[in-house]
Design a protein around this nucleic acid. Structure first.
Lengths: 212, 212
DNA sequence: GCCTGTGAAGGATTTCACAGCC
DNA sequence: GGCTGTGAAATCCTTCACAGGC
């Protein structure tokens, strides 16, 4: 049910939630779609329309209660619980992810870390011990895991994705520079700073007529 | 000119280019929009339409020359030259970025690294020496810098963005968990794994009717 | 026969604009 | 007077479907 909500809308909700959290921290108790839009470079109409998919959260003439709307968005997004995450790949990038402090405070707990290199198995990282990839499937089946993070080289990534999917993982955050194939029903988000750079250069180039 | 090309199209071009590079590495010399689409989970019509904004690169009955199309895309995106990048912020995240080996082979050269912490100034990192943020403006004006990477805490990020913009930087890769404000003509891409996670949980939740 | 390039159609998303309420 | 919620309009983007070339 409720599957008619556009994905673009879903992708904006966390941004709204983040801004609302900032407003709450700043002691604001009410915000209008106009004010929130100014903060996020989004039109007020878009914010109102996005929210209207889920209910009526505002008060005419006033705006939205910051805490109240934040709580509702967190509920809608499922951020009112903690999520269990496994990380696969402990190269340079994987290490940085394992030691990144930003996930846990937001409710994403890296409960296990895997690598295919037998040398590194057993070493502690970001509070967990590195396990061997061979134990991935068993671990996933025994422990309730919600999300997988893939941080292995591109050539190994599809295999890892396949194993995660086969074990029932429904959401994958992919750091490998490739496009993973997943069956319908599995959600993927790709993090690739190089691709982001490569689209920006187009626009720089546009503005510098003849190119150095 | 050529500013009628949808941004979504521009954002897909690097993905196409990456797949073409992989095909080239695999020794493929020709690819159809169908085959490329299968690789990327994109419809063939979309690929053909996207490319049609820039010219006619294929041959009926055959498909596209892999090397040829790759070269054209790289040219369109401005990937046929090297780009000079500065990194601001050398906390945990900034360090990982500075030492990340993925930018340079793709033509993005981190030519200088800045931090506001005087303790760390002078220390070597990823091949550069850390400079103090106070020297950022002078550096940008003296050296030709194309792109800025922001990896400072959210509260300091807008200030850094403002300084980059004031110095004429036209593209910013933002790792801070906030929405930067930039004037028209400056391109921003945000990298935020937490937001990516937070949109995926919505979909997991959808599929698990009543919550754990 | 296969596959591109592309107008036209269709679908999705954004914006408008205003009734209704505080 | 200020602001939401929302149908309707406008815009944007994707997909269709086929003429044309290899």
């Amino acid at each position: 049910m409720t599957l008619e909500i556009p994905e673009v809308v879903i992708n904006r909700l966390p941004v709204y939630a983040r801004a609302l959290a900032d407003l709450a921290d700043a002691g604001e108790s009410v915000v209008s779609s106009q004010a929130l839009g100014d903060l996020l470079d989004v039109t007020p109409a878009q914010i109102r329309k996005d929210l209207s998919y889920f209910g009526r959260f505002g008060k005419q003439g006033r705006g939205y209660n910051v805490q109240g709307l934040l709580a509702r968005l967190r509920e809608i997004l499922g951020l009112d619980r903690r999520w269990r995450v496994v990380l696969v790949g402990v190269g340079r990038l994987g290490q940085a992810i394992a030691e990144y402090g930003g996930f846990s405070p937001q409710g994403f707990e890296i409960v296990a870390v895997f690598d295919s290199d037998r040398e590194s198995v057993g070493k502690p990282i970001g509070g967990a011990k590195i396990r061997h990839s061979d134990d991935l499937d068993a671990f996933l089946r025994t422990n309730g895991v919600d999300i997988g993070i893939v941080a292995v080289p591109a050539l190994a990534a599809q295999q890892v994705v396949d194993r995660l999917v086969k074990a029932g993982i429904q959401a994958i955050l992919n750091y490998a520079p490739m496009t993973p194939h997943v069956p319908h029903g599995v959600t993927v988000r790709n993090i690739d700073p190089v691709l982001a750079m490569q689209s920006m250069t187009f626009y720089i180039k546009q503005r510098e007529p003849a190119g150095k």
